[in-house]
Amino acid sequence: MATSLTRFEDALVDHDCDVTRTSVAEFDGALADAVREPAVGVALDDQDLSLPAAVETDPTPAQLQAAASGVTPVAFAVADHGTVAIPSTATAVEPVSLYPDRHVAVVREEQLVPDTDAAFDELGPTLARERDSVIMATGPSATGDMGALVQGVHGPSEVHVVVVESEVTQS
């Protein structure tokens, strides 16, 4: 749904995120532009998409802490608010999205849900049945506690979302 995608992109910009729309064919280049090294990541579990060797996908704590970027897949994303749903997984999506200064989230257009209602349709079974955990993250971490708004507080100061358009809408 192109409208959902456009809404998602607008909302991301409203919430101070960077966004790149790309295709399966162009993904490697788009990702390379979004990532700053040193980078850590979590393998994408996607037939068509993979992370380059420069992204360390089984990081140590030292690498995690030193990384400038953390690249992760997401569970799903919410178009209306520019929110990405970050799952807690044994593959460490949560810390990889949290510790580096820049979170690069890879979102398939098919993973977009339009709004909060739809998000809760996803969350209901995930939390209640699977007993999983999900962070609904919207924009970079921030605080006003020091007297003015500052981004990058115990979390990324930059969020870059790479959205891979579905092949269907492209044709």
Binding site: P61, A62, L64, S88, D132, S133, I135, M136, G155
Partner: peptide, 21 residues
């Protein structure tokens, strides 16, 4: 920014910075 829905104990690995490597 974060609406965190944690169903602990969570699946994320713990991070032991005493074993940095």
């Amino acid at each position: 920014q974060y609406f965190s829905l944690l169903t602990p104990p969570v699946d994320s690995p713990t991070l032991d910075f005493d074993e940095p490597d």
